[in-house]
Design a protein around this nucleic acid. Sequence first.
DNA 1: ACCCAGGTGGCCC
DNA 2: GGGCCACATGGG
Length: 215
Amino acid sequence: MIGKIIEILLKYFGKQGWWPTISENKEEEIAIGAILTQQTSWKNVERCIANLSKANALDLKRIAEMDLKELEEKIRHAGFYRLKAKRLKEFAEYVVKNHKSLRALFRKPLRECREELLSIKGIGKETADSILLYAGNKLIFVVDAYTFRILTRLGIWRERFDYEKIRKFLESKLPKDLEIYKEAHALFVELGKNFCKKRPICKNCPLNGICKKSF
DNA sequence: ACCCAGGTGGCCC
DNA sequence: GGGCCACATGGG
């Protein structure tokens, strides 16, 4: 069932190729983007990424050294910008102080990396797992609000939202493959953005015929 | 004039 | 453990 859905979405939307980056420092750029995109459209995040890139600051070491007010200005478009600037800077300071770089943190096994990321204020499960999967190439599935909504409307998920339960459920249904995890999450987001918002848009949805519209 | 976005943490019960 | 709330810019 899950495999079939991914297949349909892949055919409909095409390969997503996540996570999109513009710099050489892909891992850290992904982590920065993951924090900035919390509850915020990617369009807005792209402007912040461009601002940071222009300042040569798609780099945790640079962000750790940067003046907080300056960082706030650069990421203003992302919304919650004072909170995010503070959290992003604290994250950068933590990584630089304890590991020098994000790449160094990823030398640790998945479990330890995840616990460490989750201990940082401002990094919850979705953000941690996005960083682990897309920046760290660790095999962990990323669940988000769209994932829950889609599974619920398909009639596949009938319980309340529980991040860990949904993650483990999907991991049990998908081949243990990095590229599949990356692509499947991206395709869920793409479907969500176009058809499965809080108010569903069922007209022309590629999952018509499968969707039970049970919400 | 609304509603929503690729969430998270704090506080209350 | 669950239910609310603040956080804030930008697009439909």
